[in-house]
């Protein structure tokens, strides 16, 4: 994905985060559009981590514009990106289910981290409150990530996928014959091309 497109996407996410998301809030819970976009790009695209500087700047600006303190959102986002990269190394990046598993873990991680940073600086927000909010965030963000992933996977240039899995020199294997958990793992060729 080109830098120009990344900048446009994060600028849009930033503006919508501050204007549209509050209108779509359900019981005060809003989707984290910048976080969702970052997770989808980093997970789905080879070299997607290159969007991180733009994502961090967008998160920092969102902190400046809407949050009480500047920094915690951007810091939590950057560390969450590390977790997403860890997931993408070990999972199939072209299937939506591993993407959703990554999103659940990453949103939970992000919320916990954000809460921990606030707690460290003496905010009184309780753990139970954070968990309640986190549940809502996960559901909301899953929906957003699913939509983003489906859009991006249609636009993404052809990459090595599980459709062509060669096992021990026995030729191409139909993915439908794979065991269910193998769908979550990167294909051999994907691993080789990454290496």
């Amino acid at each position: 994905m080109s830098l120009r497109r990344v900048i446009i996407l994060f600028a849009a996410a930033y503006l919508l985060q501050l204007s549209l998301a509050p209108v779509c809030a359900i019981h005060g819970i809003m989707p984290g559009l910048i976080l969702c976009l970052m997770m989808t790009i980093v997970f789905h695209y080879n070299g997607g981590y290159k969007c991180l500087p733009v994502a961090v700047i967008a998160a920092l600006m969102a902190d400046m514009a809407a949050a009480q303190y500047t920094g915690p959102g951007a810091l939590a986002l950057l560390l969450t990106a590390g977790l997403v990269i860890l997931f993408r190394i070990n999972l199939n990046t072209d299937n939506i289910f591993p993407m959703l598993v990554t999103a659940v873990c990453s949103v939970a991680f992000y919320d916990t981290l954000y809460w921990a940073i606030l707690k460290l600086f003496g905010e009184p927000m309780g753990f139970a409150f954070m968990i309640r909010q986190c549940g809502g965030h996960i559901l909301y963000d899953l929906a957003v990530v699913a939509v983003l992933f489906l859009i991006m996977s249609r636009k993404k240039p052809v990459q090595v996928t599980n459709d062509e899995v060669e096992v021990d020199g026995q030729g191409v294997v139909d993915p439908r014959e794979e065991r269910w958990y193998e769908r979550f793992l990167p294909s051999k060729r994907a691993k080789e091309s990454a290496e």
Binding site: L18, S19, A25, M30, A62, A65, A66, Q68, P72
Partner: peptide, 11 residues
Amino acid sequence: IELDLSKPYVV
């Protein structure tokens, strides 16, 4: 016009 994502209605 804007809500804080982490602490809605506090700020």
